[in-house]
Amino acid sequence: MKQLFLCILFMAWGCSKIDDSYKNLIEPGGRVYVEKAKAVVRPGYKKVAIVWPRASDPNVHSAKVYWNNYSDSVLVNIAANQDTISVPIMGLQEQYYTFIVKTFDNKGNSSVPVEVNGRAYGDSYLAALANRFVSSAAVWAGILTINWGAAAVYNGEVGLQLMYKDTAGAQKKIFVSNTQSASVISDFAADTKFEYRSMFLADSNAVDTIYKEYGRVRDIKLDKTKWSVVSFSDQHPEPGGGAAAVIDGTFTTRWHTQAIPSAAPYPHWVIVDMKSEQTFTQFGVERTNKDVPAGDARGPNTFQVLISKDNITWMDLGTFNFNRLANGEQLFPITSAASGRYFKFVALTGEGPLMVLGEISAYGF
Rank of each mutant, 00 (worst) to 15 (best):
E238R: 04
E238S: 12
G241D: 08
A243G: 08
I247G: 09
D248E: 10
T250I: 14
F251N: 02
F251L: 01
T252H: 14
T253Q: 11
W255D: 01
T257H: 06
Q258C: 10
A259I: 07
I260S: 14
W269V: 01
W269Y: 12
I271Q: 11
I271D: 10
I271E: 12
V272G: 02
M274P: 00
E277T: 15
Q278M: 09
Q278A: 12
T279V: 09
T279R: 10
T279Y: 12
T279G: 12
F280I: 12
T281E: 05
Q282D: 11
F283G: 10
G284W: 08
G284V: 13
V285C: 05
R287S: 04
D291S: 13
D291I: 08
A294C: 02
A294W: 02
G295V: 02
G295Y: 02
G299S: 01
G299I: 02
P300G: 06
N301M: 12
N301D: 14
N301A: 10
F303V: 03
Q304K: 14
I307D: 04
I307G: 00
D310S: 13
D310L: 07
T313I: 11
W314R: 02
M315S: 13
R324T: 03
L325I: 11
L325S: 10
L325W: 09
A326P: 03
A326N: 04
A326D: 04
A326V: 01
N327F: 00
G328M: 04
E329Y: 03
E329G: 01
P333L: 00
S336A: 15
A337N: 11
A338E: 05
S339N: 12
S339Q: 11
S339M: 15
A347P: 02
G350C: 02
G352W: 12
P353M: 07
P353I: 06
V356H: 07
